[in-house]
């Protein structure tokens, strides 16, 4: 049995439990003390943010897998020109800073929304997630290519091929699934953290007005744009105020809950995801 320490559950399990437990406590506290409209906004922002982050994982996995397979196939069949072209395109994508790329993606999504092409979360969410995945999936594709490259040097790859086992099966079942799924899953945990962070950053940037084409009305409510709302900003400012007026600290937990909840959820989620990924890597000796 794999456990992190001899004194209890593994580090990743502990942090996952901590995230779930603390988030539930926060929901209960907010349900009791946060006003109904603000509570609904926070819940919507939270659900939207996490839905998009999970969609990012799905798209990243699909794009990474397709790219790694395509490159391996082109290289193993000696189609060097095609492999180099695809590598060049990937490097081009890699050269764009993630935040900038996603920002432009959001501009496009917003424009499509304003033009009436996109209506409702069923179409907007996947497109937002795809925008983010486009600037993240190269990391997963690199990992998959490294794993494929490592195992194609080993005897088991050649031994299976000379027995007539199809290359696609060896790469996808024996290398990526049987021998790399733990590595891939660990990367996807990090992708989740990146998706939350990038989403909140871009939403925040858009919401405070750096873009004139996109506004908070045209995009779904997320934790990022909730944080940029004036009442949340005031809640955050209240933290600074309470530093110099300690008697005010108690009010933070009753009168400034929206901003504090949003900020806490973002920071605490990122901290937990970081520790879950680290713990998972330690537990599986990656």
């Amino acid at each position: 049995m794999k456990t992190g320490t001899r004194f209890g559950p593994a580090k990743d399990t502990r942090w996952l439990a901590a995230w779930i437990g603390v988030t539930l406590l926060l929901v209960l506290w907010d349900a009791r003390y946060l006003n109904k409209p603000a509570f609904d906004r926070v819940i919507t922002g939270f659900v939207n943010t996490f839905t998009i982050a999970f969609l990012v994982i799905a798209f990243t996995l699909a794009l990474g897998w397709l790219t790694a397979n395509a490159l391996h196939r082109l290289e193993s069949r000696g189609r060097r020109a095609a492999a180099m072209t695809l590598t060049f395109l990937l490097n081009l994508l890699r050269s764009v800073p993630q935040v900038v790329g996603i920002l432009f993606g959001y501009v496009g999504v917003s424009a499509l929304h304003d033009a009436g092409v996109l209506t409702g979360p069923l179409t907007i969410f996947p497109l937002l997630a795809l925008c983010m995945s486009l600037f993240i999936f190269t990391e997963l594709a690199d990992l998959m290519r490294e794993r494929i490259s490592h195992f194609t040097q080993s005897d088991f790859y050649s031994a299976m091929r000379v027995c007539g086992i199809p290359e696609g099966r060896i790469v996808n079942v024996d290398i990526l699934w049987k021998n790399s799924r733990v590595h891939i899953f660990n990367k996807l945990i990090s992708v989740f953290g990146m998706a939350v962070f990038l989403q909140c950053s871009v939403d925040f940037i858009i919401s405070v007005g750096l873009s004139t084409d996109v506004n908070e009305v045209s995009l779904p409510a997320t934790l990022g744009n909730l944080l940029a709302k004036i009442d949340s900003k005031q809640d955050i400012l209240a933290i600074g105020y309470s530093l110099f007026h300690p008697s005010y600290i108690g009010n933070l937990f009753f009168r400034h809950l929206q901003g504090l909840t949003v900020a806490f959820l973002i920071v605490f989620t990122l901290l937990c995801v970081y520790n879950i990924a680290n713990g998972f890597a330690e537990r599986h000796k990656l």
């Binding site: 080993s154 005897d155 088991f156 031994a159 000379v162 027995c163 007539g164 086992i165 049987k178 021998n179």
Partner: peptide, 30 residues
């Protein structure tokens, strides 16, 4: 490969996928 000729490699430890089950070692054979 697998049609006219096949080869058994020297080190079983390296020529089998250690993460596979016994059953899966025979999957995908033509």
């Amino acid at each position: 490969w697998g049609k006219r000729a096949a080869m058994v490699f020297q080190h079983a430890d390296e020529s089998l996928n250690l993460e596979s089950t016994v059953r899966q070692c025979f999957m995908g054979l033509p």
